[in-house]
Amino acid sequence: MSEQHASEHEHGLKFYWLVLFALLVLTWVTYGAALIDFGHPWSDLVALAIAVTKATLVVSFFMHVKGATSMIKMSAVGGFFWLIILFAFVLADVLTRPGMREFF
């Protein structure tokens, strides 16, 4: 079963060159996008979206999560999910303090 696994998701170097190329393009795209003013939350969201895309590329292909066991997929996502908990609850406090009304 493991051999099947391996052969299914075995990529040649050519494929990894393509991933690298995509990552490099996205790096300079995010640089370019930063020069355009999309308005308050949108600039940040565009940058974040590109960063998440790049991270997903690295995690799925360089780190072979695509085709890995479900447990490894879960741990790959789990850490980031837990971070969202941390961010969400701290923000729930900070953004709702008196004097923070402009955020709503």
């Binding site: 837990w82 609850f89 729930a92 406090d93 900070v94 709702t96 303090r97 008196p98 923070m100």
Partner: peptide, 17 residues
């Protein structure tokens, strides 16, 4: 993991949180 704020009830945490 999502209950820690009860240590901060009187630490100027917002009432909403």
């Amino acid at each position: 993991f999502i209950v820690w704020g009860h240590h901060l009830f009187v630490s100027s945490q917002s009432l909403y949180a």
